[in-house]
Amino acid sequence: MSKGLRRAVLVGVAVSLAVGLGACGQAGESGGSHTGTSAGLRIGLLLPENQTARYETFDRPLIEKKVKELCGRCTVEYANAQDNVSTQQQANAMISKDVDVLILDSVDSKSLRSAVTAAKNADIPVVSYDRLVEGPVSAFVSYDLTAIGKAQGEALLKAVGNNAGGGRIVRVEGPTSGARDSSEEGALSVLEGKVKITKPYTAAAWNAENAHAAMSGAIAAQGADTIKGVWAGNDVIAAGAISALKDAHIEPLPPVVGQDAELAAVQRIVSGEMYMSVYKPYKPEADAAATMAIALGRGQGLGNVPKDRVNSATAKDIPAVLLTPVSLTVHNIKSTVVKDGTYTVDQICTPKYRSACERAGLTE
């Protein structure tokens, strides 16, 4: 029997998941109506937006590849909400098409609750992907949010060091539900009492243009001289914040941390414009989602794939795979995103970044 998926990013995670799937006929979470292991399934895949490069470049193709690897007769029906809550009612269209299982990364966790409930009523299991959606989901896969927040907080604290003085860490976020989540708690557990943190400055949308406006507001309100670091919701928000800092002629740039390890963010880290991003390898997360979706769609149990349990505002004890993120700085680019094959040195070290790559030891 497989030892399952451990809470770490391991090279052998895909193998563990595949073995775990073989054990999914045991007692566990019940799912859809397909019980034959040879049955072809229709899997609905709903991703939230395309401003962040990860979804179209990594998540979608990796999930589709893993589905085909595990089930040659299975098909994936895909839709992207383009960061629009109303558009993501695409879930209801897939329910009407009678897909066998849904993999859902929601734009807004509350707004899709009714769709998740409708899926449950239609005997369509829902695997909540990356963000925990409300409603009766059957399984959840993501990176440990508390660990993500702690990684950001620890990076900021290390970068700021003894230079905080009376300065502040500016927090810039995208639109959220307003509730404190585990990533926020993780960061605050590190930062509170050691540095001053501003209220969240919220961008109207998860894009660089709106993040630029939010950061500009923070600069005007806080004063350029007081900003000692920037805690950004993700790498796209970080990009907008950095551009606002540049437009305000703040030199040197304060340390900025984000998450997702997008290619442009890795290049900013190499050049020194950005201090750190949280690297969440996409393959283990995609593999786990595809593995659990196929098991649930066939009406099998999840076996020993999920090692954790999580609670949402509406559901308790949800089987979960929680992976461990990595703090990405200029010092470990080669041993993380390059080693994993997420990006090549040539992709990172374009002519614009060639000299910075040499200084960072990437082109040796």
Results as ranks from 00 to 15, higher is better:
Gly223Glu: 08
Thr57Glu: 07
Asn210Ile: 06
Leu328Arg: 02
Asn121Cys: 02
Ile242Arg: 12
Leu245Phe: 03
Val305Trp: 03
Ser2Trp: 00
Leu253Pro: 14
Val170Lys: 13
Asn234Asp: 06
Ala241Cys: 08
Asp181Thr: 12
Gly40His: 07
Lys66Arg: 15
Asn332Met: 04
Ile237Arg: 07
Ser312Thr: 00
Asn304Ser: 05
Gly149Pro: 02
Val337Ser: 07
Pro48Trp: 03
Gly4Ile: 10
Ala53Trp: 05
Trp231Phe: 15
Val326Leu: 01
Gly72Cys: 08
Thr52Cys: 00
Thr363Lys: 14
Ala115Phe: 00
Leu17Val: 11
Glu209Ser: 10
Pro61Ser: 11
Gln267Arg: 15
Ala289Tyr: 01
Ser38Trp: 13
Asp98Leu: 02
Ser111Asn: 03
Val266Ile: 10
Met276Asn: 05
Ala288His: 07
Lys246Trp: 00
Val85Asp: 02
Ile169Gln: 11
Ile333Tyr: 02
Ala179Gly: 02
Lys334Glu: 05
Leu46Trp: 00
Pro61Thr: 10
Arg7Phe: 02
Ala315Tyr: 06
Val19Cys: 10
Ser2His: 07
Lys352Trp: 10
Ala203Leu: 01
Gly303Asp: 04
Ala360Tyr: 04
Ala179Lys: 15
Lys158Tyr: 11
Asn304Met: 07
Ala248Leu: 12
Ala151Leu: 09
Ala179Asp: 11
Ile250Thr: 08
